[in-house]
Design a protein around this nucleic acid. Structure first.
Lengths: 221, 221
DNA sequence: GGCGTAAGTTAACGTTAATTAACGTGGGAT
DNA sequence: ATCCCACGTTAATTAACGTTAACTTACGCC
């Protein structure tokens, strides 16, 4: 018991990670409730209940995935937003980070806003808290990058626009085919898609700022 | 048997519609697989298997909902796109129609791209065919409204942008709270949200067109 | 060289859920 | 008056699934 508590997971973590990857793939493909534990087990070479040596249960796998991606989004977002080259560069970095995420971890992005309701109350609160922090981070940066949105009356506009841009960037799972190897399905390669999403996000923010500077009475509040 | 085949559903359709509405609400709230037929029955005042007098099964309810909304989107889209006031007005009408849909039939919009995988192969193909037609409609109109996107090399960009704008507009279920009565959750009222989404969509399209006119070699194809 | 623990296996349990069967009822057309 | 059919009900059937139990195996360690 007191042997080596530091590196006992040196060979256990790969297996856990393997389970994470396959579970994410299967959950994204057929939904959390549509995938059985036996199927996840088969995907990693063990069978069924053997998964319980690595996770407390099926719920725990989903919770691990959703909390993990939410934490990574927030952490990486904070890192990028603190680049120190001004709010415009910070927003640029935020957008780039989220686009990378959407293109690299397609499965997790899909699960992130699709399977939240299958979490137990406590885990759901955790994920929502992290998501809220991430949104707040974006809202602050956006309002600094686009001064018209810094008006207190425009705060709801800024927040709604951030949500909308998330929806925009996260749309890649729908546009791209399900080929992770090459992007032969869509006529757009990965880099082209990345720059396009970047451009579209900026266009949306600019339009929001433009509208906010024009009519402050159109917020409807 | 040959009595009145024209109006036998005069009293059956309301009940069917009631089931549709409640099923959509429940599916959107807890997922297709997360809702039992007993629950749907209870929501409409009958219990469990009584639903089988109105639908062939649980799958048939979901198929009815998804095919129905896909048909309505396409039909209304075609109607609006053929307004005859030029491509810019047509795109405006398309955007307005989709925004109305996203704000009025939030549950269905949620299901539309969330529960496709729970359809049987044939129904899924039907829905996808309708969706493809809807996308094509948008792509054509967008490319006419924004000439830089009419370049053959920009076709993938136009298509990806249309998908992204769908994601943008469909993001309302996430930004708004779950109160169908008033929008007290978000600081943005319904009309404010509608005009904002309209503005954001235009901003995204304009940005895409701008990028396409600048560098034709950046498509990556 | 025995020991404990990590990591699997298969069998079994308890629940739940969709669907079907069998049966009841009430109102309109003949 | 009656027949019938749309519309429901409850009970039974069947399948699947998450989880636990009991048991095996390989390996690092004193």
């Amino acid at each position: 018991m007191g042997s080596m508590p530091n590196v006992p997971t040196a060979s256990a973590l790969p297996r856990r990670d393997q389970i994470r990857r396959e579970a994410a793939r299967l959950f994204a493909a057929r939904g959390f409730l549509g995938v059985g534990v036996d199927e996840i087990g088969k995907a990693v070479g063990i069978s069924g209940p053997g998964l319980y040596r690595h996770f407390a249960g099926k719920d725990a796998m989903l919770a691990d995935l959703l909390i993990g991606i939410s934490e990574r989004l927030l952490e990486e977002g904070r890192r990028r937003a603190g680049g120190g080259d001004g709010p415009v560069a910070a927003l640029d970095a935020l957008i780039g980070g989220h686009v990378d995420f959407a293109l690299n971890d397609r499965d997790l992005i899909t699960l992130h806003d699709r399977e939240l309701l299958n979490l137990k109350e406590e885990d759901r609160r955790t994920v929502r808290r992290l998501q809220r922090g991430y949104v707040e981070l974006w809202v602050e940066v956006v309002r600094q990058a686009y001064p018209p949105l810094a008006d207190p009356a425009a705060e709801p506009v800024a927040r709604a626009t951030v949500h909308a841009v998330f929806g925009l960037i996260n749309s890649t799972p729908h546009s791209l085919g399900s080929n992770p190897g090459q992007g032969e399905r869509s006529g757009l390669q990965r880099d082209g898609m990345a720059t396009l999403l970047h451009t579209l996000a900026h266009g949306a923010f600019a339009a929001a700022a433009n509208a906010a500077s024009a009519g402050s009475a159109s917020t409807g509040a």
